[in-house]
Design a protein around this nucleic acid. Structure first.
Length: 351
DNA sequence: GGTAGACCTGGACGC
DNA sequence: GCGTCCAGGTCTACC
């Protein structure tokens, strides 16, 4: 009997789990994943030829790699008329998402990973939510753009934002890759618990995070402390918490200033504030035609998008994203290690 | 409240 | 191959 049990246990472990997730009726994987720069940051990987997204997920029973496709994630030429050049571009919106894992998951892990995938892909933003945005800014109704890719956890979103501050985009790519390779379990993004145990000097030397080292460890410790005097993720994710309270709490965190706080707020689905940075100034000058000092252009960009109210960030972002795509091609065609390194305005200007 | 300078890394550039 | 300069947002000190 013991031999039979071992045989079945081995077989069960060897076979990877599969999940089917029904997204909102207008959901398009290639459009809604390749909508924000974080889809290019490790451990995330978008395969522009296959139309699949994969990464290592941190689960209770250990790391597990998932590959997500919609309508099979087929290869080859398509007839989408969207310029995708891929069959996955023709997938009917709302088609079920197929999630394939590299190991068997327990029932508890399946529930856990469904929540993480829903967060990452913004599956909570249903058709009515999208329509509310398009009502305010109809420019994006035809393309259906509305959802912005984010991380499976609030902690990863905060860390990714910290690694995007005061550094050029290739530096952000490098820091995220090294954090996953050096500290992450099984190549996944390091959890708060793991990072809280690290020495700042190790993060600086091996992950090349520079002066952010101590701030990252401090942030991780705050997330581990949670409700006990630290960062209570549930409170931040609770729609009942006011924008003002969240902004005040974020600014108090180490390494989080006005730009990072506004960016984390959009990652929490709160789109009223604009994370204005040097890219915004370039956009203000190059696309909107604003003149003056950086501070003056920033003020004008802010005023320009103010009429969009609670949707300001998405109007601002898609305007800038479309500008990137005009220069570098559609985002779902970007290779992480080539176009994905140079798509920002700062790099395109150098060209 | 506004401003200046330090903080680090990686890439570009000149020699 | 080496040295120098620059971009990038946050934090602190100072006015």
């Amino acid at each position: 009997m013991a031999g039979e049990f071992e045989f079945f246990w081995r077989m069960w472990s060897f076979m990877g789990s599969r999940l089917s997730i029904t997204p909102p009726g207008d959901y398009v994987l290639w459009r809604d994943v390749c909508s924000y720069g974080y889809f290019l940051l490790w451990p995330n990987f978008w395969d522009p030829r296959g139309g699949t997204f994969s990464r290592v997920m941190n689960l209770t029973g250990g790391p597990a790699r998932v590959t997500i496709s919609q309508g099979g994630g087929t290869r080859g030429g398509g007839k989408s008329g969207r310029g995708s050049g891929h069959a996955f571009g023709d997938v009917r919106p709302g088609t079920a998402l197929a999630c394939v894992f590299d190991r068997a998951l327990t029932a508890g892990e399946k529930k856990e990973v469904r929540g993480q995938i829903a967060r990452m892909l913004r599956l909570d933003e249903d058709e009515a939510h999208v329509a509310a945005f398009h009502k305010v800014d109809p420019r994006w109704k035809k393309s259906g753009r509305a959802r912005l890719f984010r991380s499976p956890s609030f902690f990863e979103d905060v860390l990714k934002t910290v690694t995007s501050c005061n550094v050029t985009w290739p530096g952000t790519l490098s820091m995220n890759r090294r954090l996953c390779e050096v500290v992450g379990e099984g190549g996944g993004f390091p959890s708060a618990r793991v990072l809280a145990r690290q020495r700042a000097s190790l993060l600086r030397a091996r992950c090349r995070v520079g002066y952010r080292d101590a701030r990252i460890v401090e942030l991780a410790k705050l997330f581990v402390a949670g409700k006990k005097g630290g960062v209570d993720s549930e409170w931040f994710e609770d729609p009942a918490t006011s924008d003002g309270a969240i902004h005040r709490a974020l600014i108090e965190l180490p390494g989080i200033g006005p730009y990072a706080a506004a960016n984390i707020m959009q990652l929490l689905g709160r789109y009223s504030r604009l994370p204005l940075d040097t890219e915004s100034v370039r956009h203000g000058r190059a696309v909107l035609g604003f003149k003056g000092s950086s501070a003056q252009v920033m003020k004008r960009v802010h005023a320009h998008f103010a009429p969009f109210g609670g949707q300001a960030f998405r109007s601002y972002w898609f305007e800038m994203w479309v500008h990137y795509e005009k220069k570098a091609g559609a985002a779902h065609t970007w290779e992480r290690d080539t176009t994905g390194r140079v798509f920002t305005a700062a790099n395109m200007n150098k060209k």
